[in-house]
Design a protein around this nucleic acid. Sequence first.
DNA 1: TGATACGATAAAAGCGTTTACAGCGCCGCA
DNA 2: TGCGGCGCTGTAAACGCTTTTATCGTATCA
Lengths: 337, 337
Amino acid sequence: MAATIFDVAQHAGVSIGTVSRVFNNRDRVHPETRERVLRAIRELNYQPNALARGLASQQTDTLGLVIPQVNDPFFFEIVRGVEDAASAAGYNLLIASQPRQPGEHSYLRLFHRGHVDAMVLVAIDVLAHEVQAIIDRGVPIVLVQQDVGRNIPTFLADNYYGARTLIEHLVDVHGYRRVAFISGTDYTPDSRERLRGLRDVLAERGLDLPAAYITHGDYLRGSGYRAMQKLLDLPARPEAVFAANDQMAADAIIAAQARGLSVPDDVAVVGFDDVPMASYVSPPLTTVSQPVYELGWQAARLALEASREDAGARPITPRMVQLPTTLVVRRSCGCAG
Amino acid sequence: MAATIFDVAQHAGVSIGTVSRVFNNRDRVHPETRERVLRAIRELNYQPNALARGLASQQTDTLGLVIPQVNDPFFFEIVRGVEDAASAAGYNLLIASQPRQPGEHSYLRLFHRGHVDAMVLVAIDVLAHEVQAIIDRGVPIVLVQQDVGRNIPTFLADNYYGARTLIEHLVDVHGYRRVAFISGTDYTPDSRERLRGLRDVLAERGLDLPAAYITHGDYLRGSGYRAMQKLLDLPARPEAVFAANDQMAADAIIAAQARGLSVPDDVAVVGFDDVPMASYVSPPLTTVSQPVYELGWQAARLALEASREDAGARPITPRMVQLPTTLVVRRSCGCAG
DNA sequence: TGATACGATAAAAGCGTTTACAGCGCCGCA
DNA sequence: TGCGGCGCTGTAAACGCTTTTATCGTATCA
């Protein structure tokens, strides 16, 4: 088996308490003793057992991350941000997927079993009072791409402003007046906020947004195709279609082209997210870039900081942070390459 | 704080030993007592502390997963497979990235600190003897998209056969005779195997593969573009280009189109992996589909099984498993839509 | 020179489980 | 009636750490 603290203590001729003090730089230890202990640690390749350490110190040096069970590069990018922040802080990362059956909440289990010091929940359908209860018991939780109010810290891209900029481009630059929407799922705020951006820009210019122009997708492959078909069947075909993410926008383009329509000449299509695929579809997608990696990174940072300041007087942490989005103009809106 | 086993014992009027027996279904407990304990567990919402449990039982119910620090949807798909297998078996998933500096090996730390019962290493640059040592100490390790011999279990897609099928399609169906290659990184076997497939098919047909036709990429965005430029500068321009993954193939297409060349009329381009993007680029990519999710899933299953059979006489586990690949014909090879 | 304080270390008490072992009541059998 | 065995449950020792408390020299001061 691996060397334990006892082995090191024996090897260095000290007690285990001293080894612990040296390893954690706690209290003062005579320089000479410290040197002996360090040598023993090196010689035995000692690494403290994480479980024992967690049990004794009541902290696990582990960050919990819960993500939806969906294959979207968007989430992977968040995972990368979270992972980087965690490992930079010397934390491990424990990942759980939101289970399929809606009743079960895996983040509760992570908490109850004492696995983690803090949690980041990405686009997860949470129970606000449960989350609040966990935070109150000393395990900080930060939400990403989700907002349930109640003073629970939240990191979001500025979906509303991003959508506004995008629609303003369509309306003010290209002069489109009939703009339709393909929504995503509804339990996180992003699709709603993007729709609100669309709605407001149109309203401010006195343009109409008929109910039939709002179709429903689920962010996943295929749903954009079906929604686009419905829109193209409409008597008053939209001049531009705003899909709530790039995947659906890419599918919408395919759907239009399958009918022999040209994008953007017959109908413009724009998306949201700026995933890698966006620049490779034809025509390349005009979309809105979100700082996804950064979102994960900052959320993880906040969660970890909160877990460490737990005892002391903690500074006021932000209730909500919106990160800026950027309009990425390519060709699917009608602009020239 | 959360309820402990003591609270439950007191609440049910039994000893902690009995609570533990009930919770783990070990030994026999009087039905009536069991009922009392179960009620107490329910009423207190008791969940055993994972650390204490791991410390006492010497098993953590946690699977370690190490992936390269790269943003590739390919890896995310593997993560999903591994996660599903782990959670189906009641295991948690601890994720670590291969650190940037080549000297450090995060999987060693996971092992040494007793975090995990088993590990899956994906496309990681490992030290064979270290891995062997860990396995010998009772923590099973399974490699994915990597092979270092030494009886270390390995899951791979059948890269060689996949490449063969792809090249046979180019040569035998389309009649291309000048086929070039854009390689990936070299520390995992996949790029090498794909090149071998290309080489063998050409050789069997008496076709030449000049050294200049083998260019070097790194699987990442951008490198396919540069490699393609070199190929197009060649006096004898290749008729078809085989990129070792789809990302580079997509970039190669862009590079060709930037020169006013038509794909596939002037030069055909094919890739490998069949990532989501492949069907959206223009022309849609002919490529080879790998069972990526399945790769992760099966690797995790094997690792977990091995960790549980540890004590008993374990059946012979496979040294290497190759999963089948499928040719996906789209338009970038010259086939009609 | 003897009481005092202090720096350094050892000893021991948890942390919350699992599990080996002991104990107890009761039944069946000689 | 006495005793071995069995079904059930309590007790206590690990597991490998952290952290509090106790101890022991040694230097300091009156």
